[in-house]
């Protein structure tokens, strides 16, 4: 084929591809995706008819009466994403972890209990909606003091909201912090 014929074919193919891959494919997916209801539109959670967050996107809980999420360099600003990418050898990471673990120590008074590592490390997305079950149980005694809810109630809330490994094999068990806090709020009311 000559140069001209090649260029014409290439341009026509790109126009056709735009139609197939950039218009029909995403729109058709969006349409069929409606089968999965709210999942195609961001898994938004509503409370009394108002959107309070997404099931999949973590939030920064600062109030003393809620479970806290993992540290996030972007403070769970979901218009962006991504961790701070600090290397293990970077003094900044050592300082941040030292400061965070000191805060945890002062706030939760662990005594001789171990601090779960996920509470002092940042996730890759910096929007992690989960903490480990251990990290949730770790916060119980503090929340008993703050909210007056009994330890057994809080423990059973965590148990209810613990998602196990896939098929008992893949990934890690975890607790969705927003859902846990919504459940906690229900108990408080």
């Amino acid at each position: 084929m000559s140069v001209k014929k090649n260029v014409v074919t290439a341009v026509k193919l790109i126009v056709l591809s735009l139609l197939i891959f950039s218009i029909i494919y995403p729109l058709l997916l969006g349409g069929v995706g409606q089968l999965f209801a709210d999942k195609a539109s961001g898994s938004i959670i509503y409370q009394n008819g108002k959107a309070v967050g997404s099931r999949l996107i973590g939030q920064n809980f600062v109030s003393d009466s809620y479970f806290i999420s993992r540290p996030s360099s972007i403070n769970y600003d979901a218009s962006t994403s991504g961790s701070d990418n600090l290397a293990a050898s970077n003094p900044k990471l050592q300082q941040r972890i030292a400061a965070d673990s000191m805060k945890i120590k002062v706030k939760y008074q662990p005594g001789n209990r171990d601090v779960p590592v996920d509470l002092i490390t940042e996730s890759g997305s910096a929007l992690d909606p989960h903490i480990s079950p251990e990290a949730a149980y770790f916060q119980v005694s503090y929340l008993v003091e703050q909210t007056g809810i009994s330890e057994s109630t809080l423990n059973s809330l965590i148990e209810e909201h613990t998602e196990s490994k896939l098929l008992g094999l893949f990934g890690e068990s975890r607790v969705n912090v927003l859902e846990l806090n919504l459940a906690l709020e229900e108990v408080l009311d």
């Binding site: 961790s83 600090l86 293990a88 673990s101 662990p110 996920d118 996730s123």
Partner: peptide, 13 residues
């Protein structure tokens, strides 16, 4: 501060 590290390196994960 004693840290439970059983999950391994969780920074960035």
């Amino acid at each position: 501060v004693h840290i439970d590290q059983s999950l391994g390196n969780m920074e960035g994960k």
